[in-house]
Write a protein that binds this DNA or RNA. Sequence first.
DNA 1: AAGCGTTATGCATAGCCGTATATAACGCAT
DNA 2: ATGCGTTATATACGGCTATGCATAACGCTT
Lengths: 121, 121
Amino acid sequence: MTRPRIRLLIGDTVALGPGKAALLEAIAETGSIASAARRMRMSYRRAWSLVQAMNADFTKPLVERAAGGRGGGGAVVTPLGHDAIERYRTMEARASAAVESDLDGFTALLKPQVSNPDTDG
Amino acid sequence: MTRPRIRLLIGDTVALGPGKAALLEAIAETGSIASAARRMRMSYRRAWSLVQAMNADFTKPLVERAAGGRGGGGAVVTPLGHDAIERYRTMEARASAAVESDLDGFTALLKPQVSNPDTDG
DNA sequence: AAGCGTTATGCATAGCCGTATATAACGCAT
DNA sequence: ATGCGTTATATACGGCTATGCATAACGCTT
């Protein structure tokens, strides 16, 4: 099965792609960078640096962080963050829809692949 | 300025993306992997391994190679290869078109960026 | 005051990716 | 036969990326 993925670039760095979008959503759901990182099986260091990069790339932070306090602190996706996610997801959906009719034909050119338990869910 | 890029994945490896598509076109135009690599400023090793990967992923080779002979040999993009390129380009165009109206709004969320002489042409 | 889990940061390390370099084989041209 | 530029392949190296581990600060809870 073939899937299309889109990423939105500024220059040649990724402003928002599948990874960052998923991370944002995980932060929104879990309430912290640390737990989001655990869920996504990436190091806290990496998750933190991705957040850092996103916050730096956008006009205002997508994620607001707090160290200390109830539960040790946490992170919150800002309204701008939610806006960015939503826009990304709609673009992703529209791109997929636009390409959908072509996908089967393209996939037919590919060798049958063994399924990957990691991405099949 | 923001640009969308799509790549077509099988599992989590790239079957065809911007890089491989450009390489295929460069091979088609120059007639060899070596010259295509030079044009794209990548090592012959890398270009060769990308061709290798593509040939392995598709039902039949996208590139046919010959060592020795007039001009030392060369590489030719097969009909299947041209087919794959064309399909990729149409999907790319359709995805871009589908997303175009959303791009401005998204870009407005980003900080103004310094231009990159490498990608601006 | 002590504990907790988080954010934040440094550093050392392993892995991967791509480059660079060298070498061989190939097959046509001269 | 020699030369040429290509394909093909091995090896070594540098760089980047991500991880892992350690540590500190933070601020609420108890």
